[in-house]
């Protein structure tokens, strides 16, 4: 039995860490993989740090938590500390460099610093594409998943919203593509 690929993502409340985990897991599942995700929710509904686990594999995954991540995503400086213990020597990291200025504690790891906040705001002029950029970047580091599966998961996730506002689809796709090109 091959080990599932383990992803942890952490951000400030409202940055969408939980939906990122959910979309990634759903995308993998729709692609025929086994997947599980779980928010590490707390009483802090606002103003706290939110964190989520996702796992993708070929065999059913029964336990939602793990202690070491293969892909590690921190969307803010506080998040870096919060999920630091989930690092192992070969963990690949993505940080949102707009909010994460100090990456000294990540030394020795493969760290991808992407300025998703700035790109969303200044280049795409749509702050809400932040998530999509992050996901695009993540996809590069998740084995066995392709862009098509992701697009399908997005369709599913945003079905209602896309029906109300079809321009959202294009915007999301654009954000996703930009993010995808950030990591080669």
């Amino acid at each position: 039995m091959s080990e599932p690929f383990k992803i942890i993502i952490c951000g400030e409340g409202g940055q969408g860490a939980l939906s990122v985990a959910e979309i990634v897991a759903r995308a993998a599942w729709m692609h025929g993989k086994k997947a599980v995700c779980m928010p590490y929710f707390s009483t802090e509904k606002r103003g706290g740090v939110s964190m989520a686990y996702a796992q993708i594999g070929d065999e059913p995954i029964v336990y939602p938590k793990f202690s070491e991540a293969d892909l590690w995503v921190a969307l803010s400086q506080r998040s870096v500390d919060r999920i630091h213990s989930y690092l192992k020597p070969d963990t690949k990291c993505i940080v949102n460099s707009f909010l994460v200025k100090d990456v000294s504690t990540l030394e020795g790891h493969e760290v991808h610093e992407i300025d998703a906040t700035r790109i969303a705001k200044e280049e795409l002029k749509k702050p809400r594409t932040f998530n999509m950029i992050v996901m695009g970047a993540m996809l590069r580091l998740i084995p066995g998943l392709d862009k098509a599966a992701f697009s399908e998961a997005l369709e599913r996730q945003f079905k209602d919203k896309y029906e109300r506002d079809p321009s959202l689809r294009e915007m999301n796709q654009k954000g996703f593509d930009v993010g995808y090109e950030l990591i080669k």
Binding site: A25, C37, F41, I61
Partner: peptide, 10 residues
């Protein structure tokens, strides 16, 4: 438990 209630999967 909270994990089972909140986790998402097949």
């Amino acid at each position: 438990d909270g994990y089972l209630g909140k986790m998402m999967g097949e």
